[in-house]
């Protein structure tokens, strides 16, 4: 029976049944996601002194504002790095087949199979003053590079581990694009660059946005890699939270920083989501 022929009561009952199916998932979210967030939020008011004291401390101190800025900047830098490397990689995966595809997929996912501490120590061996990079550089007569304990080293290590999220997001979208569209663009006179710019990039935009969201959120939540490969000048919000919990034991301040980080990420995700709206994109491509 077609939906329009069914009585309204039956449609409502079917709707309720579907909604009831969501109850276990909603309960799970309330207990394990909303609940801890509420606990964290309430904890940020549990410290001594006036209301919003911890938030005032964050937003009126130049140091903490700088750390917030550095956290966002690192997130953007790693996202751009992953995009630049991940797009061609995603394209290669999307266009490969058989064993080559499987090999590429494994190569991309491999960094995720290694523990974060072990991976960071690997980067120390590669990027250190006496590491592989500087060893090759000195063999070529180049001046030594200061990569360890700098933003460069941290960015390289994070791009390495988060690249799969970008490459696979883009690959999955590219796989769904009809290759004849690119061929048609070339037949109509577009060179390879213009075919990429005018056809592939707009069509794979959702993969780019998805990958960017995943990489950005993972970066602004990272602290182990930053702690091992950075120093006191490469401070980010998650590392400050870790300090407050493990060394200072100031739970209220840590909770306030956690809430700040959450709001920051949510706001940036909202901005990114607006980029995905078809109306916004059409207005700029017409």
């Amino acid at each position: 029976m077609a939906r329009k022929d069914r009585p309204i009561g039956a449609i409502a009952r079917a709707g309720y049944a579907r909604a009831a199916g969501l109850i276990p998932m909603m309960l799970f979210l309330v207990v394990f996601f909303i609940g801890p967030l509420l606990v964290n939020f309430s904890q940020s008011f549990a410290g001594p002194g006036t209301m919003f004291r911890e938030y005032r401390r964050i937003f009126t101190d130049g140091y903490y504002l700088l750390v917030i800025f550095q956290t966002v900047l690192l997130g953007c830098a790693v996202t751009i790095g992953c995009l630049v490397l991940g797009y061609p990689l995603g394209m290669a995966i999307a266009r490969a087949s058989g064993r080559l595809k499987a090999a590429l997929m494994f190569a991309v996912v491999a960094p995720l199979l290694v523990n974060v501490v072990v991976r960071s120590f690997g980067w120390m061996v590669i990027l250190g003053n006496q590491g592989v990079v500087n060893w090759i550089g000195s063999a070529l007569g180049l001046a030594p590079l200061e990569l360890m304990y700098t933003w460069w080293g941290i960015t390289i290590a994070l791009v390495h581990v988060l690249l799969p999220f970008m490459a696979l997001s883009i690959a999955s979208v590219l796989e769904g694009i009809d290759p004849r569209l690119e061929e048609a663009a070339k037949v109509l006179g577009a060179n390879a660059f213009n075919a990429l710019r005018l056809v592939l990039l707009p069509l794979s935009f959702e993969g780019i946005v998805t990958g960017s969201i995943l990489v950005f959120t993972a970066t602004v939540g990272s602290f182990v890699t930053i702690m091992l490969l950075g120093n006191a000048s490469t401070m980010v919000l998650p590392l400050l939270i870790y300090q407050q919990l493990t060394v200072v034991s100031d739970w209220a301040f840590a909770a306030a920083m956690g809430t700040t980080l959450l709001v920051l990420v949510a706001t940036l995700l909202w901005v990114q989501a607006r980029f995905m709206r078809p109306g916004w994109r059409q207005a700029r491509t017409v």
């Binding site: 309330v30 207990v31 909303i34 609940g35 801890p36 509420l38 606990v39 939020f41 309430s42 904890q43 008011f45 549990a46 209301m51």
Partner: peptide, 20 residues
């Protein structure tokens, strides 16, 4: 505000301890 914070904390903890 502290009262609201406490109430939300208690509510959340109650929810969490269901599976504790």
């Amino acid at each position: 505000m502290k009262r609201i914070a406490n109430v939300t904390a208690v509510a959340a903890l109650c929810a969490m301890t269901l599976s504790g």
